[in-house]
Simulated assay, not measured.
Amino acid sequence: MKTDEGKLIDIEMQNSALTKEVHYRFQIYGARMIDHQVNRGDLLYSENVHEVYTILFVNDIDRDNLLLIDTYMPRNQLNHVRKYNLLTHHNVYLPFIDAVVREKGLKNLSKIELAIYTLYHGITDDIMALNSEVVIMMKEKMDQFNEDEELVLAASKRQLVKIQHHQEKVRIRQEGKEEGLKEGELLKAKENTLMLFKSKYPQEDILMLENLTLSQYNEIFKALIENKDLQIIKEMIK
Rank of each mutant, 00 (worst) to 15 (best):
K188L: 14
L194M: 12
V170Q: 15
I97R: 01
T118C: 15
L68F: 12
Q167G: 02
K200R: 11
E47W: 01
M142H: 11
S16Y: 06
K111I: 00
K177F: 15
L66M: 14
E204W: 03
E51M: 07
T193F: 05
N79L: 11
L68W: 07
L44A: 02
R82D: 06
Y84M: 07
A31K: 11
G122N: 08
K177E: 02
G41K: 03
N131G: 10
K228N: 13
D4H: 08
D143P: 00
N192L: 15
L78A: 10
N15G: 00
N211K: 13
L56W: 01
L186I: 10
S215A: 11
Q37Y: 03
N108A: 13
D64A: 12
Q37I: 07
E235P: 00
Q159N: 12
L8R: 05
I163S: 09
I127A: 09
E147T: 06
A155W: 12
L196Y: 07
V81Q: 14
D143Q: 10
T54C: 11
E178K: 05
D70E: 15
E133K: 01
P202N: 05
R82Y: 10
R75M: 15
T19C: 02
F57I: 02
N146I: 04
I11S: 10
L153V: 04
K7C: 08
I233L: 08
Y53L: 13
I97G: 00
I61C: 12
D10A: 13
Q159E: 14
H89I: 13
Q77P: 03
A17S: 13
E185P: 00
A31E: 14
N15T: 10
D126A: 07
Y217T: 02
L196Q: 09
V52T: 05
H89W: 02
K234I: 02
K238N: 12
S156I: 01
Q14T: 03
V161Q: 13
L18H: 13
R75I: 15
E5S: 13
